[in-house]
Computed example of a mutant assay.
Amino acid sequence: MPAKSKAQQKAAGAALAAKRGDAPESALKGASKSMEQSMSERQLEDLAATPRKGKPEHADDRKS
């Protein structure tokens, strides 16, 4: 599942680093904190590996 925005991709990267032990879990906030707890390492890898080029900074949450 590719990331829908740059912010989602960055949050997944931070959560992945914490899950692997490269960054402290206490440094996580917001979405990255919940991602780290609820997603597997493989799911986080998929989101974090999404290229940022052409992605909006934040996804549009409004549904038409």
Rank of each mutant, 00 (worst) to 15 (best):
E41I: 13
R42M: 10
G30W: 03
L47M: 09
P2V: 03
A31D: 14
A7R: 11
S5F: 10
R52W: 00
R42S: 14
P2Y: 07
S32Q: 06
A11H: 04
A18N: 09
S32M: 08
D61I: 03
K10M: 06
S34R: 15
L16Q: 05
A15N: 11
T50G: 07
A15H: 02
K10N: 02
Q37T: 10
A27L: 12
Q43C: 05
K4G: 08
T50L: 03
A11F: 09
T50M: 06
R52Q: 09
A49P: 00
S38P: 00
G13Q: 04
G30E: 10
R62Q: 14
Q9V: 08
A48S: 14
T50N: 06
A7D: 09
S38I: 04
K29G: 01
G54K: 10
K55A: 07
R42V: 10
Q8S: 10
R42C: 03
L28S: 14
S32L: 06
A18T: 08
M1H: 11
E25G: 01
M35V: 07
Q8K: 11
K63M: 11
A49G: 15
L28Q: 05
K53S: 15
K19T: 11
Q8H: 04
G54D: 13
G30R: 13
G13Y: 02
A48M: 01
K4D: 02
D60A: 07
R52H: 05
K33N: 00
P51R: 06
L47G: 08
R42I: 07
H58D: 06
A18Y: 01
K6Q: 13
S64W: 11
S5R: 02
H58V: 08
L28C: 02
A3T: 01
S34K: 13
A49M: 00
K10W: 02
P51Y: 09
D61F: 07
A17P: 07
K55T: 04
K63P: 02
R20L: 15
L47A: 04
P56R: 09
A48T: 07
G54T: 13
A11Y: 01
D61M: 12
A27S: 15
E57A: 14
M1T: 07
R42K: 14
S40Q: 12
K6D: 00
D60G: 08
A3D: 05
T50W: 01
D60C: 11
Q43D: 13
K10I: 12
S34T: 15
K63G: 08
K4E: 15
K10F: 05
S32I: 00
G21W: 07
S64C: 07
A49I: 01
A18E: 02
S5P: 02
D60H: 11
A59D: 13
R52M: 08
A11V: 08
G13W: 00
G21I: 06
S5A: 15
R62L: 08
R42G: 04
K29D: 01
L28K: 12
S38A: 12
K6T: 00
R42D: 13
G21F: 01
S38M: 14
A18K: 04
S40D: 08
A15M: 09
D46Y: 01
M35P: 00
D22T: 06
E36H: 11
R20P: 03
K33T: 05
P56S: 08
L28N: 10
S40M: 07
D46H: 06
